[in-house]
Design a protein around this nucleic acid. Structure first.
Lengths: 199, 199, 199, 199
DNA sequence: CATGAATGAGTGTTCATTCAT
DNA sequence: GATGAATGAACACTCATTCAT
């Protein structure tokens, strides 16, 4: 996405705008952040913003789209590992969700908080992608039940909701530099969930 | 001051405003809902709104305060049951969280989504109360570990975050009238969590 | 104006409102002081205010009217002293203007600052009364010139404007408790003016 | 940035806004003049106003600041004339005060009437500058006393207040086109004051 | 590519005033 | 005499967006 360039200055303005916007949206919220706020940080004018984006909403959509697209791509890589057990696939999904939130901090928080400010149409698009992710988790549970890795009595959809809930919720509270490392957290939750559902 | 009456009209204006605002905030979001939107629904004027509330933010604070206060009161009733096992207390907390979200639907969604629009001071107040709730859950886990009900290897704070995550997340997706009843959901999650952490 | 009464409580509400309003108008300005501000100080409600006054403007008019009426009455007493020289009459007028401003502090400041907030009609009325006062000063100068007390070359109208200017201006700066007493100030200005215009 | 042009249209919008605002503030008063009133006169929209000014108060501050700054600059020119007698310097100061009020008519009236509507901070700033002007007058009186031009018995601070009072008051009543020209008025007041204080 | 100027619709809030009780 | 509730018009200010240059 970012082509090779010699120095900072040549980084494309559109990326700069997106990056700074994410930080502002995280700190102040989407609706409370004005275009003026954004361009002030970059030392440019509003005209510049509108040269790169049709609207404020389009910028928010781009942020959402990038986040969910990346997430789905990474999930696909897990799903493609044919020889992996469902248990391990589930663990990998838990790892993906948690690490992505922690590593993408600001983007993640904007992604989870500001969905409502998309247009109906765009909101539906993002929701569909998020649903795809969840259904993939559900499928792993389903397969794990059929293959005897998980208990037969489970309701896979509810389990999937539980898994994304427990992991996604961390965007609300996880702080880098605390006493629990990302990988520790992954272990704790994977352990808890697998113990909770396995045969 | 409020005499006993049978009908709708006697409900105090302040309560009406609060009730309708919650519905609008849920549907359109706090910052996208104008005072005009609110008073239009009630067929009154903006002056009336400001007769009962200092500001739009105060209304939001009232909603938050009511929600968390009620929740804490109900939690206290559980904590007071001295003869109850920690397992059962945890189950009761899960039940409380889930049922409250489902029963208070719109209020719950406003509570979880619009915290950011409170002033710094009020946001801190609400966060403190939410923290109290979570620490009470943590304490149950702690006691359960000491009394041999739960595994010794757990990190009670992380477990508590997991529990509120899995339950609270339901505000995002649970729809009344679906295939899983509130009580079924409670059972599923309580089962999953207890299996996940017990000895 | 205030009839004999046994205690504080029986002082008529209308006077209380007027008194407190003057203090508030002085401190915050007429347009920045709300009826609510006024009634809050007195612990009553807005209805009470409107029982005694048709409008906020009427209250302001009352304050203006009281001030200028009192001033004119006191001036009349000076003018009636037939055997007094014009010099002494002028000195007495200077004393009246200065002492009234200092003694009526808040009322005086409201009187000089808030004229503009009267309706056109009322503003004209007050201006007429203020003009009467000034013309009386002018007449003293005129008589003094004719009787050889003051220089023949004076323009009585300009002198009168000068006299009210020098004295009225003190509402802007005079502070009780400073190094110059009211009576000293009277002496200084009377001296300066009389030296400035006498034969 | 502003190229040379012959006509009205090329005057910068900010100056136009300031000019028209002064006229409106003079006629209707600051608090009674709305931003809408201002922009209506100019045939632009409120957004345009806020493109040039942060707030209504900033515009008022600009007006005040311009007025007092110009006045102080002109006073400095008088003070710098080393060979001039204190008497003449005083006369020049009287001339400056009166002519400035008459020539800047509307600005002067806004300056004298609307100080109260500045924020506390700005009001203090303007008051400090006004004080500088007055202290400079006081100094002239002081020097004139020491050099034997004025009577030894004077109180320079009270005399200075008297001088600015007598002159500034003219903003209340002086009307161009009346029977007394600005220069005549200067002569009359200078004469009166100097006679009043000289040895 | 980028700017500066302008728009126009909307926002939260204030407040003098009214009036039934 | 006094209250509490409600009105409605106005206000300062914001902001996403447009567009000629």
């Amino acid at each position: 996405m970012k082509k090779y360039t010699a120095g900072e200055d040549s980084v494309h303005m559109k990326e700069k705008i997106t990056k700074e916007s994410i930080l502002l949206f995280e700190k102040k919220g989407f609706s409370t952040t004005s275009i003026q706020d954004i361009v002030d940080v970059l030392g440019v004018t509003k005209g510049t913003f509108y040269y790169y984006f049709h609207s404020k909403e389009q910028l928010l959509m781009d942020i959402h789209y990038d986040y969910i697209t990346t997430l789905l791509k990474r999930q696909e890589q897990i799903l493609n590992k044919d020889q992996m057990s469902q248990k391990d696939k589930l663990t990998e999904n838990i790892r993906l969700l948690i690490r992505n939130i922690i590593e993408e901090g600001p983007s993640a928080r904007v992604f989870f908080r500001e969905l409502r400010h998309l247009t109906d149409e765009n909101r539906d698009k993002i929701r569909q992608e998020r649903k795809k992710f969840r259904l993939n988790v559900e499928k792993i549970v389903q397969l794990g039940m059929e293959q005897g890795e998980f208990r037969k009595s489970l309701k896979p959809d509810m389990v999937a909701f539980g898994i994304v809930g427990i992991t996604n919720w961390s965007y609300n509270w996880y702080q880098s530099g605390g006493s629990t490392s990302p990988e520790e957290l992954v272990k704790i939750y994977a352990d808890m969930i697998l113990n909770g559902i396995q045969n």
